[in-house]
Amino acid sequence: MPHIVVCFKWVIDETYLRRAPGGGLDFSSVDYKLSDYDRNAIEEAVRIRTALGGTVAGITVGPPEAAKGVKDALSRGMDAGVFIADPAFVDLDPSQTVSLIAQAVRNHVGPFDLIICGEGSGDLYAQQVGPRLAEALGIDCVAFATQISLEGGTLTAQRRLEGVIEVVTAPLPALVTVLPEINTPRIPGVKDTLMAGKKPVRTLAKGDLGATGGPRLQTLAVRAAAMERACEKFGVEEAEVIRFVDALKKRGVLA
């Protein structure tokens, strides 16, 4: 019966991001959500547990406000959570996040067979935490799986690369990152959400874990996209559509 760990992140829902005058980003009306990719990771872990038994524990790093995300993640069928929380844990560098998660996995989670991560986070989408975590823990890594199964201490995964589908095996424990097409995440029912608050959550503060080291990358700026292509907008009326076609012709991309 496998013990599975899932990593997840509570992220800004980008639908609520607006461009601020001057090219910056307006975060004033943002809402947060469980990163879409992580929903697939959780669903896959819960699917495996439903078939094989075992446990699913979730782990996340974030500011204390991300507690809602822990509840959300638990409502999707995981058994327990580890919440590494500190007001300073915002915009961590992937290497710092990995350092925290690796320490928590080693010292506070217990033996595990499989770690599942989403393919990337919904906000910064660096796609680093999964593969880095495998290295930090010294376990095998399979990224971008579209199908996985466990049998007799072995992970079998189908991964999608450019132009080729690869089926690979790896001895457990291993880490796998999954693509969204691997499953369709559930919509938690009312009872699932109400029960989530009753599941065990281990909250780890900064002091419970060792130092992460400084950031390896420094963010100099985050500005609204679209600097180089100034979009000329057209309406949908006939005259506008004709103007649009003419504009394409003028640019020489339409015969």
């Binding site: 560098d93 992937p94 290497s95 990995v98 989408y125 660096a126 796609q127 680093q128 935490v129 999964g130 593969p131 880095r132 495998a134 290295e135 930090a136 890594c141 990224a143 971008f144 991964r159 999608r160 690369l161 450019e162 990152t177 080291g213 950031p215 390896r216 990358l217």
Partner: peptide
């Protein structure tokens, strides 16, 4: 930033304890 590259780069970066700009 192919699938392989996106797996290998963070793993290398972790081994070299360095920063990586993805994609």
């Amino acid at each position: 930033a192919t699938a392989r590259g996106r797996e290998m780069a963070p793993r290398l970066a972790q081994r070299l304890d360095t920063g990586l700009c993805s994609n």
